[in-house]
Simulated assay, not measured.
Amino acid sequence: MVVMSIAGVDPSAGAGVFADLKTFQAHGVYGCGVVTALTAQNPHKVFSLSPVDGDYIAEQIDAVLDAYNITYIKTGMLYSPEIIKLVSKKITEYDLKAVVDPVMVATSGGDLTKSDLADALNKYLLPKSILTTPNIEEAEKLTDLKINTQEDAIKATEKIPCNSLITGGHLDGINTMRINGEITIEKQELIESDNLHGTGCNLSSAIVANLENGNDLVNSCLKSFDYVYKAIENGNYGTLIAKL
C-alpha cells in the first residue's frame, strides 16, 4: 500500500511533503514524496521559495514509479504552469488517480506560486484528476466567483472541471462536496486555534490514504474531515499517529 505526494517542502513540517508523509503514516500507508519546490517558512511566515527544475521533478516521479506500483497520489504546491503541465503528463503516462490540493497561498498569507496558476490547473490538471480540495480563496480563483454563502459554494463546484470539495474553514465550517454530480454538505464546528498551518495539505493527503485503504471518495473525504478536526483539536498532527 504505497501512495505519493508531489508538493513543496516546508521545513517546519506542518505543510507540504513532510506533513503529507506524516499523515500517510498515521493512516497506515507508505508514502513517497516528490519535491517541486523548497521553501523557507514556518507556521507564521514565508521567507523565500526556490522551485525545482522541471526535468528533475520528472526524474523524481519516474524513479519512484520505477520501484513502486502506485495508484493514488496527491499534489500540493506545483508553483508554475510548466510544472502543472509536467505533472498532468505524468498522471496520464502512469494512469494515476490524483487528488489536487490547489495550493496558491500559504496559510500565513505568503504567495507560493507564479501567476496564471488557476488557468493552468483548470486546463491541464483538474480534468485528469479525481478530486480537488480548494479552500474558499482558491475556489474563487479557480472559478472567478465570489463565495460568501453555501449557495455560492455549490455554484462554484459546477464550474470546477472535476469532483470537488470546497473546504469551509472560511465559510462557517460548511464543507461543500460535488462528487459524481451529487452535492454533499458537511458542516463542522469551528475550533478557535492557532494550529491551522497545513490543514489543506493534511486533508488532501488523508483523503489519498483513505482511498488507498479501500474507502470510496465520499467516505474518504468524511473520514479525513474527522482526522483534521482531531488534529486541530489536539494541536499537532503527529500526535494522531498512535491514535488512529
Score class of each variant (00 low, 15 high):
Asn195Glu: 15
Gly214Met: 06
Phe225Gln: 08
Gly198Trp: 04
Glu192Ala: 15
Asn215Val: 02
Leu203Thr: 04
Ser193Glu: 08
Val218Ala: 04
Glu212Phe: 00
Thr199Val: 15
Glu192Pro: 09
Leu211Asp: 01
Val208Tyr: 02
Asn219Cys: 06
Asn213Pro: 09
Asn210Gly: 03
Leu190Gln: 15
Val208Ala: 01
Lys223Pro: 07
Val218Arg: 09
Phe225Ser: 02
Val208Cys: 01
Asn202Glu: 12
Leu203Gln: 03
Leu190Arg: 15
Val218Lys: 12
Asn210Gln: 11
Val218Met: 00
His197Phe: 10
Val208Met: 00
Leu222Cys: 06
Val218Ser: 00
Leu217Met: 07
Cys221Ser: 09
Cys201Gly: 01
His197Tyr: 11
Asn219Gly: 06
Lys223Glu: 14
Glu192Leu: 12
Ile207Ser: 06
Val218Leu: 13
Ser220His: 04
Ile207Met: 10
Lys223Thr: 08
Leu190Ile: 14
Gly214Pro: 05
Cys201Glu: 04
Ser193Val: 11
Asn215Gly: 04
Leu190Cys: 13
Asn219Glu: 12
Thr199Ala: 14
Leu211Cys: 03
Ala209Cys: 03
Ser224Asp: 04
Asn195Trp: 12
Gly200Arg: 06
Ala209His: 01
Glu192Thr: 14
Glu192Ile: 14
Glu212Trp: 03
Ser224Phe: 04
Cys221Pro: 03
Ile207Trp: 07
Phe225Glu: 06
Lys223Met: 13
Ser205Ala: 13
Ser204Ile: 05
Ser205Tyr: 07
Asp216Gln: 07
Ile191Ala: 11
Asp194Ala: 14
Asp216Pro: 05
Ser220Cys: 04
Gly214Ala: 08
Gly198Ser: 10
Lys223Asp: 13
Leu211Gly: 00
Ser204Arg: 04
Cys221Glu: 03
Ser205Phe: 08
Ala206His: 10
Ile207Gln: 07
Ser224Pro: 06
Leu203Ser: 04
Leu211His: 05
Cys201Val: 02
Ser220Pro: 05
Cys221Asp: 04
Cys201Trp: 00
Asp226Glu: 15
Ala209Gln: 01
Asn215Leu: 12
Cys201Ile: 03
Asp226Asn: 14
Thr199Arg: 02
Asp226His: 11
Asn215Arg: 10
Val218Thr: 11
Leu190Gly: 14
Ala209Asp: 00
Asp216Glu: 06
Asp226Tyr: 03
Val208Leu: 01
Ser220Leu: 01
Cys201Asn: 10
Glu192Gln: 14
Ala206Lys: 06
Ile207Arg: 06
Val218Pro: 00
Asn202Val: 15
Ala209Asn: 02
Thr199Met: 12
Leu217Asp: 00
Gly214Thr: 06
Asn202Ile: 14
Ser205Ile: 10
Ser193Trp: 09
Cys201Tyr: 00
Ile207Val: 15
Ala209Val: 01
Asn202Ala: 15
Asp194Tyr: 13
Asp216Ser: 04
Asn213Tyr: 09
Val208Asp: 01
Asn210Ser: 11
Cys201Phe: 03
Lys223His: 12
Lys223Cys: 07
Ile207Cys: 08
Leu222Tyr: 02
Ser204Met: 07
Ile207Glu: 04
Leu211Ala: 02
Leu196Arg: 14
Val218Asp: 00
Ile191Arg: 11
Thr199Gly: 09
Gly214Phe: 05
Gly198Met: 09
His197Val: 08
Ile191Ser: 10
Asn215Cys: 11
Asp216His: 05
Ile191Gln: 13
Leu217Thr: 03
Ser220Asp: 01
Leu222Val: 11
Glu212Gly: 00
Ser224Thr: 09
Leu217Phe: 06
